[in-house]
Structures are given as structure tokens and as C-alpha cells.
């Protein structure tokens, strides 16, 4: 029964020393340790949250970039199409212009040919008339001398004319 008899001295010293240890540890050990632990946990928590936020921002940024890229691509396509259209139009216009010019030149040529032809015809007509007049003149002159010779002359002249 000795081990369960209360001893005043033990209880007294245990109370004093334990409370002293509790006070000293609470003040100089547990407080800084618990504060440091909580601070570190908070900082880790914050870091994680910030990383999450950064990830989200990054995603937003990436999405923005992609949109920008798609826009740029679209614009490029449009510009290319427009360029093609303009080129086509230019070619078409050049073609029509050229045709018109060719037609105009041909028309001009035709007109000048017609003119030349008319001129030539007029000249021929004039020459024929002159010749006829000449022949007639000579005939008239010969008839006066000899009718047989006249006939012969006419024939001759006619031959000449044919030759011409």
C-alpha cells in the first residue's frame, strides 16, 4: 500500500515544477512553434492558391493568344482572297481592253482598206474614161481617112485595151 499513499512533498513539487514548465514552455517554446507552423501552413496555402490563379491566368492568356492567332489567320485568308479577286479583275479588264483595242484597230484597218479601194476604183474609172475618150478621139480622127483602115485601127486599139 506504500505505492498508493499520497505524499504531500511529491504533489507539491510536481505541481510547482509542472506549472513552471508549462508556463515556460508555453511562453518560450509552444507559442513560437505553433505560430511558425501556422504561418508556414498559411504561406503554403497562399502559394498553392496563387499557383492555381496563375494557371488560370495562363489558360486565359493562351485562349486569348489562340483567338488572336485565329483572327490573324482569318484576316490573312481574307486578304489573299481579296488580292486574288483584284488580280482576276485586273486580268479581266486587261483582256477586255485588249479586245476592244484590237477590234478598234481592225475596224480602222477595214475602214482604210475601204477608202483605198474606193480611191482605186475611182482612179480606174477615171482611167477607163480617159482611155475611152482617147480611143474615141483617135477613131474619129481615122474615120476621116479610110474606113477600112479605121476598122483595122479600132481592132488594134481594142486589142491594146484588152492587153491593158
Amino acid at each position: 500500500m506504500e505505492i498508493v499513499t499520497p505524499k504531500l512533498g511529491l504533489i507539491f513539487w510536481q505541481l510547482v515544477i509542472f506549472l513552471l514548465v508549462l508556463f515556460l514552455l508555453a511562453k518560450f517554446a509552444w507559442k513560437p512553434i505553433l505560430v511558425a507552423l501556422r504561418d508556414r501552413e498559411d504561406s503554403i496555402d497562399n502559394a498553392l492558391r496563387m499557383a492555381e490563379q496563375a494557371k488560370l491566368e495562363m489558360q486565359n492568356l493562351k485562349a486569348g493568344n489562340e483567338k488572336l492567332l485565329a483572327d490573324a489567320r482569318h484576316e490573312r485568308d481574307q486578304m489573299l482572297k481579296e488580292g486574288q479577286n483584284i488580280a482576276n479583275q485586273l486580268v479581266e479588264k486587261a483582256k477586255t481592253d485588249a479586245t476592244e483595242e484590237a477590234n478598234r484597230i481592225a475596224q480602222q484597218a477595214r475602214e482604210s482598206i475601204q477608202q483605198e479601194k474606193n480611191q482605186a476604183l475611182a482612179e480606174v474609172r477615171n482611167t477607163a474614161a480617159q482611155l475611152s475618150v482617147d480611143i474615141a478621139e483617135r477613131l474619129l480622127r481615122r474615120e476621116l481617112a479610110d474606113p477600112a483602115a479605121q476598122q483595122k485601127l479600132v481592132d488594134e486599139y481594142l486589142k491594146d485595151v484588152k492587153l491593158n
Binding site: G9, I17, A29
Partner: peptide, 28 residues
């Protein structure tokens, strides 16, 4: 007689208390 002696248990108590104080102060 009121016995407030530093018995073996109290000496051990002082020793372990000192150990705890030094150890946890060091950790802090």
C-alpha cells in the same frame, strides 16, 4: 513532519523538466 524533500522522483522530475525546456526551446 511535512516532507518537502527533493526525493529521487523529484530529482528525476527536475531533470526531465530541464530536458524538455532545453529541447523545446532549441526546437523553437
Amino acid at each position: 513532519v511535512y516532507d518537502f524533500s527533493i526525493t529521487k522522483n523529484i530529482a528525476a522530475l527536475l531533470g526531465s523538466s530541464l530536458l524538455m525546456l532545453v529541447l523545446f526551446r532549441y526546437i523553437a
